[in-house]
Computed example of a mutant assay.
Amino acid sequence: MHEFTRVDRDESVSAPCVLLSGPDPSLEFQFSWDEFATDLMAQATGNGTVSRVNQPRRSDLAAKAVVGTDGAIATTRCKTKRGKYFTLTLQLPQVKLMDQSHRKDIEKFMRAYFPATVRTLGCS
């Protein structure tokens, strides 16, 4: 397993981070800093691939969050150099579109990972 990342937490630079198992991506993250709160449902169901999550449902894992069958998006107030909100997108590219079996595990992972990540950002 190895990691490819362009994320710079100190500079709050929005970028992807991909964990690879051999040549294949296992987990894909998008770290984003924005001036305004994001409409997560629109982001999850939009045409873009950076934040697309299949069959998203709202979750209480963060101030705003959605969890789908193949990923999740969460956002919270986090004032840094680049914005007032931090959004983290998790995607599992290997999950098949109709596979419902990972939703609970994705939410459980994000309940731990998202707040731990936010604590490393130096939000004010």
Rank of each mutant, 00 (worst) to 15 (best):
residue 2 H to R: 10
residue 3 E to D: 11
residue 3 E to F: 09
residue 4 F to N: 07
residue 5 T to F: 05
residue 5 T to E: 01
residue 6 R to Q: 12
residue 7 V to T: 10
residue 7 V to F: 06
residue 8 D to V: 10
residue 9 R to M: 08
residue 10 D to C: 05
residue 11 E to M: 08
residue 12 S to G: 09
residue 14 S to I: 03
residue 14 S to L: 06
residue 17 C to I: 05
residue 18 V to T: 14
residue 19 L to P: 00
residue 19 L to S: 08
residue 21 S to F: 07
residue 21 S to K: 10
residue 23 P to H: 03
residue 23 P to Q: 09
residue 25 P to I: 05
residue 25 P to W: 01
residue 27 L to N: 06
residue 28 E to C: 11
residue 29 F to C: 02
residue 29 F to I: 02
residue 30 Q to P: 00
residue 31 F to W: 08
residue 32 S to I: 06
residue 32 S to L: 05
residue 33 W to H: 10
residue 35 E to A: 12
residue 35 E to W: 07
residue 36 F to C: 01
residue 38 T to G: 02
residue 39 D to A: 09
residue 39 D to T: 08
residue 40 L to V: 04
residue 40 L to P: 00
residue 43 Q to K: 05
residue 45 T to S: 12
residue 47 N to M: 08
residue 48 G to C: 06
residue 48 G to Q: 14
residue 49 T to S: 13
residue 51 S to T: 15
residue 54 N to Q: 15
residue 54 N to A: 15
residue 54 N to F: 11
residue 54 N to L: 15
residue 55 Q to W: 05
residue 55 Q to E: 15
residue 55 Q to Y: 15
residue 55 Q to G: 11
residue 56 P to R: 08
residue 59 S to V: 05
residue 60 D to W: 00
residue 62 A to N: 00
residue 62 A to L: 00
residue 64 K to R: 15
residue 65 A to Q: 02
residue 65 A to K: 07
residue 66 V to F: 03
residue 66 V to E: 04
residue 67 V to M: 07
residue 67 V to H: 03
residue 68 G to W: 02
residue 68 G to Q: 01
residue 69 T to G: 04
residue 69 T to E: 11
residue 71 G to F: 04
residue 72 A to F: 01
residue 73 I to M: 15
residue 75 T to I: 03
residue 76 T to S: 14
residue 77 R to E: 15
residue 78 C to P: 04
residue 78 C to I: 14
residue 79 K to G: 08
residue 80 T to K: 15
residue 80 T to D: 05
residue 81 K to I: 11
residue 82 R to N: 13
residue 82 R to S: 15
residue 82 R to I: 04
residue 84 K to T: 12
residue 84 K to I: 03
residue 85 Y to S: 06
residue 86 F to A: 06
residue 87 T to D: 01
residue 87 T to L: 04
residue 89 T to N: 12
residue 91 Q to V: 07
residue 91 Q to Y: 04
residue 92 L to S: 00
residue 94 Q to K: 12
residue 94 Q to D: 10
residue 94 Q to C: 02
residue 94 Q to L: 13
residue 95 V to S: 06
residue 95 V to D: 09
residue 96 K to V: 08
residue 96 K to D: 13
residue 96 K to N: 09
residue 97 L to V: 13
residue 99 D to G: 09
residue 99 D to S: 02
residue 99 D to T: 11
residue 101 S to M: 07
residue 103 R to D: 02
residue 104 K to D: 15
residue 105 D to M: 09
residue 106 I to D: 00
residue 107 E to I: 01
residue 108 K to I: 03
residue 109 F to D: 03
residue 110 M to K: 01
residue 111 R to H: 06
residue 111 R to G: 10
residue 114 F to Y: 05
residue 115 P to I: 14
residue 115 P to F: 14
residue 116 A to I: 06
residue 118 V to M: 00
residue 118 V to I: 07
residue 119 R to I: 00
residue 122 G to Y: 07
residue 124 S to P: 12
